[in-house]
Design a protein around this nucleic acid. Structure first.
Lengths: 280, 280
DNA sequence: CAGAGACGATACCCGTCCGGTATCGCCGCC
DNA sequence: GGCGGCGATACCGGACGGGTATCGTCTCTG
């Protein structure tokens, strides 16, 4: 099976329409039809059920869509990491983490690693929630800082770095800020202070009462304005009070920050960074 | 990057010899040379350093060898799992585990799962130590029973099933068998009873004094003959005494049996099997 | 020191296969 | 019943993969 065939099939399986898939691939429809037929013939498997009105996935097609995406990610990762490895003076490691979520842990880690004799240049990518896994999987990043249980570390090697409780972040002066600590139920049901809605991976937002937010800054501003409340790890709490206050939430699930990397990529540089992280 | 190019490069990178690699690939040497040049040109990266006497990997080449193997495994997995998904009546799940190492856990699991209403056929593969990961990675198997810390579950999702201590297995009548329990140091230094040597993944054996063994049966026979001793999980201990005796080893690392599967393959059947396993 | 041998690169040729255009067959819908 | 949308088929040209023959270079040897 060639990656070209995989790319073709995935386009068709996602569009469920040969014409649109061909357009997306920048080619004409007939060779695409033929390529899919050939793929089916070589596999000995029917991947798509076609009528002149609709195209649907067979069960085997659904399997190939799932597995094929993972395989293409792996091929892309090989491509990207190889290219990066060849550029002299380029960052030898790319670290990805959620924007504004690691507090002082990230600078500490970078400093500690940079102090090592064999340290190499480390690039940092800050991205939105949930994107880290994809970057790690398709080779745009080599290592990530993740927050369990929010992020999923499935398929990666990890080392635990820190476990912490969560705090409720509320507008300064809100009655609850006088309390020494809170419970989840105190915070999730506040009238007039709904929890914000974060975008899904595809950019759409779930339904609900809360305001839509894209990043930490927006969130803090909304809280300061008295339009929202949020629960976040202690270390993500803003330190200089910008009209917001933080109160520990006793029964919020603890958050573990882990350093994660693809299990097969045990380069010297990566090993050094992981070592530096675990010594923090 | 096409899988054909990856296969070619990996062959050359492993052989470090274009002629032998071409032979292994069943093709002539010149087109192979050209394909590698083209791959290097497209990547914009030198992968191999050639003289007329030797071929060596560049750093980027080493990266592509590692990453490319993983990528090819992922493509092969997509191929195999798609083929299997299409065959009606074929086993919908393939479980792999080390031959003779799971004791009664495996039949219990299969029975428990088979009793479920939506159970599908499960094939079982028994293989040598260390091979499970590869089968899981390249799609010949869907789920595995692994023994931490002996096997590595990196890159897979897992659920813990059981943790147990280890026992020393000794020839019946050996003085140590009278003791109620032992320490590692008691067993590893026994004069005339060396620990056996297991084959590596490539089939070669490490150097050392112990006899070479390939499976559990050989091992037990050698122990019964008074030629070896071994340390193994309690559940792997032979139950009908075949001239061997087992004594708990207090300070041996505990062994955890886990059920493991590729993180992206969350099929209904697999989920059912994992559920049955965790309920045991 | 010259010649043989090993090895990767180059030159050149042929067949296959990929991709394009034109068109067909089928089906739902005004 | 004709029109339009959609996937399949037919056919063609060009690119590319793979084969054989040969070269350039380096090393070892008689």
């Amino acid at each position: 099976m060639e990656t070209r065939e995989l790319r073709y099939f995935i386009a068709v399986a996602e569009e469920l329409h040969f014409g649109r898939a061909a357009e997306r691939l920048g080619m004409a429809q007939p060779p695409l039809s033929r390529a899919i037929q050939q793929l089916e013939r070589r596999l000995g498997v029917t991947l798509l059920e076609r009528t002149s009105r609709a195209v649907t996935l067979t069960e085997a097609g659904a399997v190939l869509l799932r597995e094929g995406r993972a395989a293409l990610d792996a091929v892309d990762a090989a491509d990207r990491r190889t290219r990066r490895a060849a550029v002299a003076g380029a960052p030898a490691l790319v670290l990805v983490t959620k924007a504004g979520a690691t507090g002082e842990l990230l600078p500490k880690l970078l400093d500690a690693y940079a102090a090592e004799p064999e340290a190499v240049a480390v690039d940092v990518i800050l991205c939105g929630p949930g994107e880290q896994e994809r970057l790690l999987r398709d080779g745009r990043a080599d290592v990530a800082l993740l927050h369990l249980p929010f992020d999923s570390a499935t398929g990666f090697d990890t080392e635990d770095l820190r476990t912490e409780g969560q705090v409720a972040v509320l507008p300064a002066g809100h009655p609850l800020t006088a309390r020494p600590h809170l419970r989840m139920s105190d915070v999730t049901t506040l009238p007039g202070l709904p929890m914000p809605r974060w975008p899904r991976l595809d950019g759409t937002y779930p339904d609900g009462p809360g305001p839509q937010v894209r990043d930490q800054t927006q969130l803090l501003q909304l809280i300061a304005l008295g339009r929202a409340a949020a629960i976040m790890p202690e270390s993500a709490r803003p330190h200089r009070g910008e009209d917001v206050a933080a109160v520990p939430v006793l029964d919020a699930p603890p958050v573990t920050t882990v350093i994660a990397w693809p299990p097969h990529s045990r380069s010297r540089a990566l090993a050094g960074l992981v070592r530096a992280a675990t010594r923090l």
